[in-house]
Design a protein around this nucleic acid. Structure first.
Length: 811
RNA sequence: GCCCGGGUGGCGGAAUGGCAGACGCACACGACUCAAAAUCGUGCGGGUAACCCCCAUGAGAGUUCGACUCUCUCCUCGGGCACCA
């Protein structure tokens, strides 16, 4: 018998599969399409991370399993190589990103081949390929034409290190999601995508999606729907009369509103400022807020700040009371209406503010009714109760009076979302130039492609792609402008409408736009005339299975859904959810800590593949823990799998023993492995194969070996293929063979062990024929010497019998 | 603060409400060997000389004939959100 030599076997079969196109489905003719997608990597670091390999292997096992079950599995791979992460890497090592992209590409593809995944290599996608980003730009123009892309000036998140704006989703706890730098606010005019238009749908669809629950929860919280009412307050200041609209989810507490608070940026503040007696104080406060960094705000979170607009008064619409008006940064300009009614007795933030500035606190909800004298509140009371001091509503249950009070105050029911529009512009170099042109002449004449955006034109389809020029100085400028703004030959264009001298947009788009539609391109990647082929798209999409990291819960996974909804509304695709099933894999850590370059504990898969083989590494990674949980990579445990595969090698080539005794374990193993793969419990599937091997070594017949190889194939594709060939078990490839089936009737052992308990404690274990009747089992138990002894002549009062499992005698 | 997950031997982990610790790692002993590695075999939660006994799944209570599993309270670790009215 030859020795198991993975160094020969693995490259041999990788070449074979490649040549034969084993993993290339017929995209046009496939009968049972199964699009199994995994999130593509961004090639920013020194090479493929073992975490990537972990994710890809998990997804690949599922794909191989489905392929053997008879599906035409399409499992493509590509690179998310455009964008700030790749650019930063290029900056760090001092190469041009375009050059670095080619280097990374080669390296990544070599590594991706070495892990033995069943990728469809013919349909690769690289986001920086002009053939690809041509269509990314085209999608931008579609968004523009349909009114979903627009420009607006507002305070946006700016990363002082990456020197670009960021979407809200890219800011984590006030810091840049990528580099961890404290984000600051800048007032800029930028391109946005109107994702908020789909807030309701993004939320509602979640219910019917078969996605990892934690992703759905994260999205739900991010979208942050709240139902409430907008209510108008008449506000007077000297000669000025304004109506200020507030948003509240608790209109039932209206009688307890003792003042209004406006965001410092609220439009009405500027009007009132002329009429107030403390102009200096208010102006100073507004200035102070403007200059506060996010860090300072978080620091001061506990301490409320603000300023009264002296001389400004609002009228509470439910009782006509005149109440003061304040400004404070605890009210956000960007949420609701930027103004609130403060009910200090029943809202903790208002409570703190009122305490600090000695504003009246009026209780309008008591837990009981009629209300006993309420003791002074220590904090806001937000529980249930009955309305008090609330005019005609007093005595009603607060919860039930919400809409009645709102109606009484002439409020309107309204739904608000936490979700903000997606900021698309980036002042960086390495991305698709935003395909827009601004013509000052048209703008002056109020002409434009869209009425609401004079002067703006999308680049005509025939002129796409707007190629990213190879410029020498691609470093971010820090000046609100992309490095492309320095390239005259790039930005000087003619107006597509009037032909006058116009200016091309010089910002590039967010990387997440590249990845928001890539799954559509894979199966149609050969098409040079359209972003995707309708027939192929109809056949293969939406995705049957999508696998990726949970860190993209509110980034990629939200954007990709939004994009599908938009494209569907444009009539370009016929589904609005890109993936019917999504599973988030867990995080792979190393010796109890997250892998990171700073800790120096990043594992590169290359040396492990070299030393142990791809099959061993694959199985090791999957054996660690449930795939959706993640695992802890420890060098010493790899040996377990090495031994296992060595034994498999010998087991399959050992002489056949025809004794037909292993039927039950064979069928149970098939059942267990099948169900475990379906549930992504690869660790226990591998354990079941180990148990099978332990039991059958030296007693297996040919059929049992053959079935074992098939079960092993998704996990260890090379060794199983090699043994399949040398053993002559069937046509090559094993990966196109059928998945074994089990017979539930044969899963049962002839004899079962039944635990006999007395008062829940096991006192004896009986071996009885399976399916034994209750009466027989109980009499066998009572006849047992140990049981007799334990019973000491007492008679069990109650007997619980669980078939084939246990008897509990209760005395 | 709120919302999700977790907490089981020395370690990774396994257990439709039914024999806790499968499977593997590490470790110990034995076989093979001049020797070592590899391989094979045996053992391996704690108490105990030993057990058929007792204790044990973060802590405490509860439901149940029976709880790692369900309910409540608390501790703790990880992740997400964080003045969202």
């Amino acid at each position: 018998m030859k020795k198991y030599d993975f160094r020969k076997i693995e490259p041999k079969w990788q070449k074979f599969w490649d040549k034969k196109g084993t993993y290339e489905p017929d995209l046009k003719e496939a009968k049972r399409p199964f699009y199994n997608l995994m999130m593509f990597p961004y090639p920013s670091a020194e090479g493929l991370h073992v975490g990537n390999m972990y994710a890809f292997t998990g997804a690949d096992i599922f794909g191989r399993f489905k392929r053997m079950q008879g599906y035409d599995v399409f499992q493509p791979i590509g690179l998310d190589g455009f964008g700030i992460h790749s650019e930063n890497y290029a900056l760090k090592i001092g190469t041009h990103p375009a050059k670095q992209a080619k280097i990374s590409e080669k390296r990544f593809y070599e590594q991706l081949k070495a892990i033995g995944n069943g990728f469809a290599w013919n349909e690769r996608v690289e986001t920086y390929d002009p053939d690809y980003y041509r269509w990314t730009q085209w999608i931008f123009t579609q968004m523009f034409k349909h009114g979903l892309a627009y420009r607006k000036k507002q305070a946006v998140n700016w990363c002082p290190k990456d020197l670009t704006v960021l979407a809200d989703e890219q800011v984590v706890a006030g810091k840049c999601e990528r580099c961890g730098t404290q984000v600051i606010q800048r007032e800029l005019e930028q391109w946005f995508f109107r994702i908020t238009k789909y807030a309701e749908k993004l939320l509602n669809n979640l219910r019917s999606l078969d996605w990892s629950e934690k992703i759905k929860i994260a999205q739900k919280n991010w979208i942050g729907r709240s139902e409430g009412a907008t209510i108008d307050f008449e506000v007077k200041a000297g000669n000025i009369k304004e109506s200020i609209t507030v948003f509240t989810t608790r209109p039932d507490t209206l009688f307890g509103a003792t003042y209004l608070v406006l965001a410092p940026e609220h439009f009405a503040v500027q009007n009132f400022i002329k009429e107030i007696s403390n102009q200096k104080e208010v102006t100073a406060y507004i200035e102070a807020v403007k200059n506060k960094s996010e860090e300072e705000r978080i620091d001061e979170k506990k301490e409320k700040t603000g300023a009264e607009l002296r001389g400004v008064h609002a009228v509470n619409p439910v009782n006509g009371e005149s109440i003061p008006v304040w400004i404070s940064d605890y009210v956000l300009a960007s949420y609701g209406t930027g103004a609130i009614m403060a009910v200090p007795a029943h809202d903790q933030r208002d409570f703190e503010f009122a305490k600090k500035f000695k504003l009246p606190i009026k209780v309008v909800i008591c837990p009981n009714y009629p209300a006993p004298k309420c003791p002074p509140l220590e904090s806001a009371y937000t529980g249930e109760g009955y309305l008090v001091d609330s005019g005609e509503f007093s005595g009603k249950k607060a919860e039930e009076a919400i809409w009645e009070v709102a109606k009484f105050a002439r409020g309107k029911k309204e739904v608000k979302f936490r979700l903000r529009d997606w900021l698309i512009s980036r002042q960086r170099y390495w991305g698709p130039p935003i395909p827009m042109i601004f013509c000052a002449v048209c703008a002056k004449e109020n002409k434009g492609e869209r009425e609401d955006m004079p002067g703006w034109y999308s680049v005509p389809e025939k002129d796409l792609p707007v190629k990213l020029p190879i410029i020498k100085d691609f470093r971010p400028t820090g000046s609100n402008q992309s490095p492309l703004a320095a390239s005259k030959s790039f930005y000087e264009v003619k107006c597509p409408s009037c032909g006058a001298k116009a200016k091309r947009e010089t910002d590039v788009s967010d990387t997440f736009l590249d990845s928001a539609w890539y799954y559509l391109r894979y199966p149609s990647s050969e098409n040079k005339k359209a972003p995707w082929d309708d027939e192929i798209t109809k056949k293969w999409l939406p995705l049957a299975m999508y696998t990726g990291g949970a860190e993209h819960a509110v980034l990629h996974l939200l954007y990709v859904r939004f994009m599908a909804m938009a494209l569907k509304d444009f009539g370009l695709i016929d589904f609005d959810e890109p993936a019917t099933r999504f599973r988030a894999h867990g995080l792979l850590i190393k010796d109890g800590a997250k892998m990171s370059k700073s800790k120096g504990n990043v594992v590169n898969p290359d040396e492990y593949i070299k030393n142990f083989g791809a099959d061993t590494l694959r199985m090791y990674l999957m054996f660690l823990a449930p795939f959706e949980q993640g695992g802890d990579f420890r060098d010493e445990s790899v040996m377990g799998i090495t031994r296992f595969l060595d034994r498999v090698w010998k087991f399959i080539q050992s002489p056949d023993v025809e004794d037909g005794k292993n039927l039950a374990i064979l069928h149970r193993t098939i059942k267990k492995v099948t169900e475990d793969i379906e549930n992504l419990h690869y660790n226990t599937a591998i354990s079941a194969m180990m148990i099978f091997l332990n039991a059958l070594e030296g007693t297996a017949d040919r059929k049992e070996k053959e079935i074992f190889l098939r079960l092993l194939a998704p996990f260890a594709p090379h060794i199983s293929e090699e043994l399949w060939e040398t053993g002559g078990f069937g046509e090559i490839s094993i990966h196109l063979a059928d998945w074994p089936k089990y017979d539930p009737n044969l899963c049962v052992e002839e004899k079962v062990k039944i635990a006999v308990q007395i008062n829940g404690k096991v006192r004896a274990v009986l071996e009885l024929p399976s399916g034994v009747s209750e009466a027989d089992a109980v009499s066998a138990a009572l006849a047992n010497a140990k049981i007799k002894e334990s019973l000491q002549g007492k008679k069990p009062g109650r007997i619980i019998y669980v078939a084939d499992r246990l008897i509990n005698l209760v005395i």
